[in-house]
Amino acid sequence: MSYELGKYIKNFIEHIEKNRNASPNTVIAYKNDLEAAALFFGKDKFVSEMTRSDIRSFMSSLSQNGLSPKSCGRHLASLRSFFRFLICEEIVNSNPARGVITPRSSKDLPRFISENDMKNLLDGAFRDDAIGIRDKAILELFYSTGARISEIASLNIDDIDMESEELRILGKGSKERIVPIGSAAKESLSKWISSRSKMIRHFERALFVNARDGKKLSVRGMRLVISEYLARVNPSAKNPHAIRHSFATHMLDHGADLRAVQELLGHSSLATTQKYTHVSIKRIKDLYRGAHPRA
């Protein structure tokens, strides 16, 4: 990586942290994407010399290394944003990433867990201690709200209003939303809040804490917890995001309004939520073909 490119990447990261109110995960993604590009371009490449051909070569190398079209598209979007910043700073005159075609993502439907498997998961056996109570509360809250794993991990104890059965979530772009808590999740949370003090060794605002030191349970730690439980009921959908997909799919299957689901998920665009209608329609077609005598 050239010193010049490294310096401009650092300036760009500082810019999005201060002016775009970007989440920590977004900042890390931008930093990783741009540093990967900088390593590819080497020590002797100046930003003013970069061309569309250079960007295409980088994208080609990502594809050859096995990155998915979606991941390649994210790298390209990061480069476009980076060069827009450099143009605003009057460091370059044009954006070489602008005319590069974004790789087409495959239109795979979101993986989700069946309602029966979710019931088996949530009604299944948990450890008979504070850790088991915590784990059940995490899973119940995850399925009850459809929140992102980073949103659940960042919850504080005062984000819950048990009386109103509401949860305050800070989503992408620091956008706040209020979502309802189901009765099963409320019951599990009540038990966890009563047991939480057994894990805490000092003052801690985080709702979910780890058993090792009583501090906030990290996203990585929560991901490991959820993946372990998911593997018991559906090994093919052990990514924690499958619970969020399941929440949306099951809501739509039971007649929920698409815009209401959009609000609950915290999607800024209705188009993002609409992918779940394809899952529901596919399920309806499968049921139809299996039940209709002339299907």
Rank of each mutant, 00 (worst) to 15 (best):
N93I: 07
H75W: 08
M59Y: 05
N116F: 10
F82H: 08
A125V: 14
S94R: 11
S114T: 06
A137D: 05
S57R: 15
K119C: 02
A137I: 02
V92A: 08
V92L: 12
G124P: 08
H75C: 13
L79S: 14
I91T: 04
I55F: 13
V92M: 09
C72I: 02
R134S: 12
N116D: 14
C88A: 14
V100I: 03
H75K: 12
L62R: 02
N95E: 03
I133D: 07
N65S: 15
R104S: 06
S106H: 09
S94W: 04
R98F: 15
D129W: 11
P69N: 01
N116Q: 13
N120F: 12
L121R: 03
R80W: 09
G132P: 12
S78V: 12
A97E: 06
L121C: 01
R111C: 08
D123A: 04
V92N: 11
D129R: 14
I55Y: 11
R111H: 10
R56Q: 01
I101L: 13
S68G: 02
S78R: 10
S60A: 14
R98A: 15
D129F: 12
A137S: 09
F85E: 04
A130Q: 08
D117E: 15
N93F: 08
S114E: 06
N65A: 13
E90S: 10
R74K: 06
K119R: 14
A137M: 05
A77T: 15
